[in-house]
Amino acid sequence: MRFEDRLDEAHLALLETIPAEMLDLSDVPTARATLAGRAEAMKEQAPEIPGVEIEDHHIPGPDGDPDVMVRVYTPSGVDAPMPGFLWIHGGGMVLGNVAMDDVKCKAAAASVGCVVASVEYRLAPENPHPAPVEDCFAGLQWFASNAGSLGVDPARIAIGGGSAGGGLAAALALLARDRGVDIIHQQLIFPMLDDRNITRSSHYVQHPKVWNRETNLAGWSALLGKPAGSEDVSPYAAPARADDLSGLAPAFIIVGDLDLFLDEDIEYAGRLAAAGVPTELHVMPGAVHGTSVLLPDHPVSKRWQAIEMGALKHALTGGG
């Protein structure tokens, strides 16, 4: 059955509203501006989330590189140290910014009761690998080193991200393990993990109004500075390339069954579990890439959001 034939009316209507320019990576500046405009419009329509303070910090970047902006979201009026959650935005490695996830980060801070730090990492193609993941690692190091002044319990720090941010979070989990930085959880939301694009789902999703095979190959090639699927790709760029997944932080992965990342995410979850990493996997029927963000009032999105926030709360506080 064709991809389009499996979409419900709400998704079909959504796709009609997606500007073609937003996913046209032949013109990255226009795609960035289009996505930023749409994200800002969605943010203006979202309900207010009171009781969360926001502060931007400019921290030292990797050696010899520019400073990195980290936006911190802190629940108001809490004196005891709280768990911390480092979040990484999506955008196919070439698009997006911290601001587009303000609502999500405020909601996580308020509902889970944690301090959220969101990293403004450098984007490809201007800044190919390893710049994005090294910026994220700089953010994690700063978050952990300054936990006390930020009101964070350094023994309860998790990382996570969506789409490209999910892939960067998975890569960051590998870096944290290999460089001796402790994290307790990795929250991977429809993560972008494998540059090879050889799975069934990576071929199946080619609709121009969702993140599709063409845009995915372009995003990976921009990050790598060479064609996606090339030899000698670092697992810190494409985590699915990692040979050893043992010793990683417990993982939560959620993906829609109409997402081109479906198969690679399922495979990665299975490999994590086989390596002895506690792993929770959810496949949401009828969801495309970004359903939970683009259609927040859809029934599948409400289930998704409850599962996602429940998993984060359980990981950070033991609550469900």
Rank of each mutant, 00 (worst) to 15 (best):
L86V: 13
H129R: 05
M192I: 09
E126W: 10
E126A: 13
L174F: 02
E120H: 12
L150M: 01
G92W: 10
C105E: 01
L174E: 06
G151Q: 01
A110P: 05
A131M: 11
M100N: 12
V116Q: 05
G148R: 10
C136I: 03
N127M: 11
F85Y: 15
A164Q: 02
H203Q: 14
G139T: 11
P154W: 04
M82S: 11
A138N: 10
S145Q: 15
N97D: 14
E134G: 09
A144M: 00
V115Q: 03
N146Q: 07
S145P: 07
L140C: 06
G77F: 08
G151W: 01
F137L: 14
G180E: 05
H185V: 04
R196D: 10
A131T: 11
D101F: 08
A117F: 05
A138C: 02
D194K: 08
R200T: 12
S202K: 11
G162T: 14
G77K: 11
E134A: 13
Y204R: 14
A169Q: 00
A80F: 01
G139I: 11
Q141R: 15
G91P: 05
P81S: 02
G148V: 09
R177G: 06
A131G: 05
G90R: 02
S111P: 09
V133M: 11
A155V: 07
V115R: 08
I159N: 00
G77E: 14
G139P: 08
V103H: 15
G167D: 00
P128F: 01
W87S: 13
V116N: 06
D79F: 00
F85N: 07
G167S: 04
W87C: 09
A80G: 12
G162Q: 13
L86D: 01
Q206V: 15
D153T: 04
C105N: 12
G139K: 04
L95F: 04
V119T: 14
H89Q: 09
A171E: 03
G148P: 03
